[in-house]
Design a binder for these strands. Structure first.
Lengths: 210, 210, 210, 210
DNA sequence: TATGAATGAGCTTTCATTCAT
DNA sequence: GATGAATGAAAGCTCATTCAT
C-alpha cells in the first residue's frame, strides 16, 4: 500500500520529467519546473531522486521501457514479418508527431548527453546501449522467426542483425529529417520507399538470385 | 585590408566555437571558453557576435558550409554516380570518427536546438532547412545527372528526391547508431549493405522489372 | 512509568545529539541524522524538543552535567588536594582523547555558539556561565578545603578563585593546543609542568616568602 | 598597477571576510553578506576566490599573519624578556575586546573547523599548525635570547618550548574563559597571576633552589 | 579596438519544520 | 504516540552580458 503510493508519486514525477526533458532538453529544464508539472514541491523531487541527473536517467529508462513494450506489443499483433516491420515503422512515425509522448525528442536529448563532454551519459553509454540492444534484439528475433516460418528468405539469417541495425538507423534518421524538414517531407512515403526495398531483400522469390 | 583582419578574427572565433559547441554542446560551452580557445578576450567575442546565440548560429552555418563544399568536392572527383554515393558515405563515416571536425556531434546539437523549446533554432528551423536542402539538392542533382548520362535507371528520376532524402536519413541515422553503439557495430559494413540495396534500385538491368 | 519511558527516549535522543553535535558541530549536523542515530523518526525529535536549538541546549546541558559529576567523583576519590588537581587534569586530557565522549569538541562548539551572532547561545551565555561556575566552585571548594585541612598554604585562600579560573583556563587552552597540534605536543608533559608550578604556589614551605 | 588594484580588491574582500567569519562564524556567514560588506557583487567574490572555503582559508591566513606581525612588533619594542611576555599578554587580551579585529573569535572558528567532521580545516590542520608553530617559534626565540643575554635562568633553555606552549595554552584558555564569563572575571588580574608564576620560573636568583 | 573586471539572474541542492496518517 | 512525506526558504555557485579603460 505505502510502497504503491510512493511508486505512484515517483511515476508522476518521472512522467513530468519525460515530458519536460523531451520538450526543453536537460539543460533548459529546471527541477523546479518538473516539480511544478508533477504537482509537488521542489524538494519532494529530491526525496525521490538523488539529483537532476538521476531523475534524467530514470526518465530516459522509463521512456525507453515504454517504447520497448510498445515494440513487443506490435510483435504479438500479427504474424506476418513484413506487416510487423510496417507497424513498427508506423509506430515510430506516430510517436514522433504525438507531442505528449515526446519520446523521439527525448531520444535526441539522450544522444546529446551521450556524446557531449559533461553530458549525463558521457562515458556511461552502456546504460543506453543496453536498452538499444534489447530493441534490436526484439526486431532481430522477429526476422529470424520469419525465416524459420519460411516467410522470409533463408539466406538473410546471416545478415539479420545488420539488416535490423540498418532498419533502426533509417527510422532514427528519418525521424531526424522530419524534425528539421517538418512538413516538407512526407515521412510515410519515405518510409514506404524504404520498406519496398526491404521487401526485395527479405521476401523469397524476389531479388537478384531468382 | 582592415576588413580582412576583422574577418580573420571572426573566423578564428567561429572555428573555436565549432569545435567547442561540437565537443560540449551549446549549454555546456561557455563564451569564455570559446574566447580562450580562440585566443581573444571574453568581450571581444561580443564585438563580433551579438550574443551566444548568434555565435552558435554562425558556427553552425560555417560548419555546414564546409560540409557542403566537401560534398561538392566529391561530386567533381569522379563521374560514376554510385562511386560518388560511396564516397559521400565514406565522408560521412569519416567525419564522424575524426574528432577534430566534430561536425556530426555539432549536428546532433543543432537537432536539439531545433527541437527544444528555448533552443537556439526553435521556431527558426528555416535556417537549418536551407542548408539541408542545399545538401539534398547536391545529391539529387548527382542522381539526375546519372540518369541523363544513362548510367542510372531512367525511372528513378521521379523518385530521385525521395531516394536522396532516404539516403541522408540513413546516413544520419547510422551516425547516431554509431554514437551510441560505439565499436559494437561496423559502420562500414552497415553502409555497404545499404549501398548494395541502393545499387539494386539505381542501376539499370537490375531490380524487379528485369 | 509512562514518564520514565518518555524520559528514556528523550535521553536517547540527547545522547545521540551530544555525540553528533560534538563530532560534526551544530551547523553540520542535521536533525535527521540525530533522529537516525537515536533510532527514532525525524518528527519524534520534535515531539521531545521544540526545535534544533532546544535540542542543542539540552545536549550541552546533559554533557556538562556529566562532566560536572565526573569532577565531583574525583573529589571523593582522594583527600590530597594536589592529587585531586592532578586527577582532574588527567580527566581533562583523557576526555579529549576518547572519541566517544566528544565533550571537549562539543565544548568548542558551545564556545562558537556563544560568541557568534546568530549562534544558539549568543546573548544567552548565562546558561553556560551557570554550569561553568559550578565547575569552578567545585574546584574552588577543593582548594579551600585543602587550606582548612592545612594541607595548602593559608594565604592562597584569598586568591583561590583566581587560581581556579587560571587552572581551568590552562586546561581548556591546552586542550585547544592539542586539537591543533595533534601529537606534536605531549599534553601530559605540558600539564605536568603546569602542575609543578601550581605546587610551588599551593604547598606550604615553598615559594617566595618562606 | 593593475596587479595592485586586484590585490587591493582582494584584500578588501578578505578583510570583510575576516570580520564576518569572526562575528558570525563560517556556517552562518553567507558569501553574499561578505560581498555586500566588501561593497562588491556576489560573483565578484568568486572571481577572486574559488569558493567559500578558499575565502575562509585566505581570511584565516590573513588574520593569522597580522597577528604574527603584531607579535614580532612587540619583540622589537623592548629588550626585557618578561616585559615582552607581558606585552604579548596584553596584546592577546586587547585583541579580544576590540570588536573590529575579531581575531580571537575567528580563532575559535578555526578551531571548530579543524575539529569538526566536514569542517573546512578537517584533516588539513597542517595549514593551521604551520602558522601556530611560527608564533610559538617567535616566543621561544624570545626566551632563548633572554637566556643568552643572561636575563633569564640558564636552565630553562631545555624547557623553553614547553614553557612557550603552556604560555599560549594559558592565553588561549583565558581568552575562552572571558568569552564565556564576560565581565565576571578580570582577565588582567588573571593574567597577572600567571605572569607572576612565570617570573618565578624564568628569572634567575629566584625559585626553589635559592 | 580589445579587454578583463564586475554583476545579477537563475540554477541545483539541503534542511528545519509541519502535518496527515 | 510516532512517523515519513512534503515543502519553501536560503545557500553556493555559474555564466551571459555590460562597461570603463
Amino acid at each position: 500500500m505505502l510502497l504503491d503510493k510512493r511508486t505512484a508519486k515517483a511515476n508522476g514525477i518521472v512522467q513530468a520529467a519525460v515530458l519536460l526533458f523531451g520538450k526543453k532538453g536537460y539543460a533548459f529544464t529546471s527541477v523546479e519546473e518538473i516539480a511544478a508539472a508533477a504537482g509537488v514541491g521542489k524538494s519532494t523531487v529530491y526525496d525521490y531522486y538523488k539529483n537532476k541527473e538521476a531523475l534524467f536517467k530514470a526518465a530516459v529508462i522509463s521512456a525507453a521501457e515504454r517504447k520497448l513494450s510498445d515494440l513487443k506489443a506490435i510483435t504479438s499483433s500479427t504474424d506476418d514479418p513484413l506487416e510487423r516491420m510496417k507497424r513498427i515503422t508506423e509506430m515510430y512515425l506516430a510517436s514522433d508527431r504525438s507531442e505528449c509522448s515526446g519520446l523521439s525528442k527525448l531520444f535526441v536529448e539522450v544522444l546529446s548527453q551521450t556524446q557531449l563532454q559533461g553530458g549525463v551519459f558521457f562515458n556511461q553509454r552502456h546504460m543506453i546501449q543496453k536498452v538499444y540492444q534489447r530493441m534490436i534484439r526484439t526486431v532481430l528475433d522477429l526476422l529470424l522467426e520469419g525465416v524459420s516460418m519460411r516467410k522470409l528468405r533463408p539466406d538473410i539469417a546471416r545478415h539479420a542483425e545488420m539488416i535490423t541495425i540498418n532498419f533502426f538507423a533509417f527510422l532514427d534518421g528519418l525521424t531526424m529529417q522530419s524534425m528539421i524538414a517538418g512538413d516538407h517531407i512526407d515521412m510515410r512515403e519515405q518510409a514506404g520507399l524504404y520498406l519496398e526495398q526491404l521487401k526485395d531483400i527479405l521476401l523469397p522469390g524476389q531479388g537478384i538470385g531468382t
